[in-house]
Design a protein around this nucleic acid. Structure first.
Lengths: 195, 195
DNA sequence: ACTGCTATACAACACATTGTTCTAAAGAAG
DNA sequence: CTTCTTTAGAACAATGTGTTGTATAGCAGT
């Protein structure tokens, strides 16, 4: 029942966002403006203002595009825990290292401090990520691979927070080798929290 | 031998930075401008430009003021581990919750993504924090409170990264009660990594 | 208190950016 | 072909950034 959109609308919108995303990654959030996008795309300024009346609209749209879920839609819970965790967290490492998300995340963190929309985007995305990791731990408990007393929520937070912290805050690398040792430690911790 | 500075210089500089810091905390980094500070302080715009020729100078000065080390200069390593960690991490919780640092940190994280100076400020501050936590763990090892095989560096990263992650990225609260359970988990983990 | 020096206030200015509005032309849909 | 919508382009106001020049007020040394 929804009549298809005018192809011109989608065309300019997609083309503009493609380029605004590139600007965001290379020059940061505050470089994303109607003027900059206009120069990069040769789309008229007035047209851009027609699509996104304010700068904040344009920027929101841009990093909403940048946060298209870099990760799996379903968790892999076949076990063993080490494999599941590696598989899952590897998506996070890749996202942070090799996709727009890694470049955009810091900007969103900053926006979230003052902007409610950004806060919601970020919390939603992070919450989703956390619950996937929790799923994996729960599955391990159900397989009797780790004790029932495992503080799943805490371990999941640790699993996710460390890569974010290293990459965004501490300025440390996160690579495959680091990930392996990180996951190994998590597994050991999960196994040793019995009593 | 250094002649004392003209009192007028220090007066206006201090007064300006005081207010620019407030602007930074309430409205974010990009709200810190010569105009805004001028309006807030009734200091002439030209005077502000005299002190900080460019916006970036003003902003750098502002968040350099905001990052006066919120924390102890020396770690407390009397033991037990739980007490030392609580004492130390409590400074971090307070800094994030009740000082300018908590408001400014997200902005610096964003700046660090593109700006080298900010990256250095951040890395230095974080590295300092991490090494203090490591000291505490080392002391516990020396007291034979936790095994020698304890992965100190990893645990220290976890100790610090989780509060940062919760506060800055996940939008979760960090209070005294949470800190207690966090520290308890860390102690348990340190104790159970024998094998 | 007088004199030279420096910081500040104020106003005027050039310039870039943000955002609005109007008109004409080009494309889509019937 | 006709009608509606989108776009391009230019002109415009408003604001923000950064500069310059001048007059005033406060600091230091004599």
């Amino acid at each position: 029942m929804t009549k298809p959109e005018d192809p011109r609308l989608t065309a300019t919108r997609d083309y503009a966002l493609e380029n605004s995303l590139e600007i965001l990654m290379s020059d940061g959030l505050l470089a994303v403006t109607h003027n900059a996008v206009s120069k990069a795309t040769s789309i008229s300024r007035s047209t851009l203002y027609r699509h996104w009346p304010e700068v904040s609209d344009l920027r929101n749209a841009t990093f909403k595009k940048a946060t298209t879920p870099p990760g799996p839609t379903e968790s892999q819970t076949n076990g063993p825990l080490h494999a599941d965790l590696t598989w899952l967290l590897n998506f996070l490492v890749i996202a942070l290292n090799d996709t727009p998300w890694g470049q955009v995340a810091p900007q969103i963190v900053a926006s979230a401090a003052t902007d409610c929309d950004a806060q919601e985007v970020l919390a939603g995305f992070i919450g989703d990520r956390l619950s996937r990791v929790e799923e994996v731990f729960h599955a391990a408990v159900n397989r009797n691979e780790i004790p029932t007393s495992t503080p799943i929520s805490d371990l999941a937070t640790m699993a996710v927070s460390v890569p974010y912290f290293r990459k965004l805050i501490a300025g440390l690398d996160i690579d495959a080798k680091w990930l392996d040792s990180h996951v190994s430690l998590l597994c050991k911790l999960a196994n040793s929290t019995k009593n």
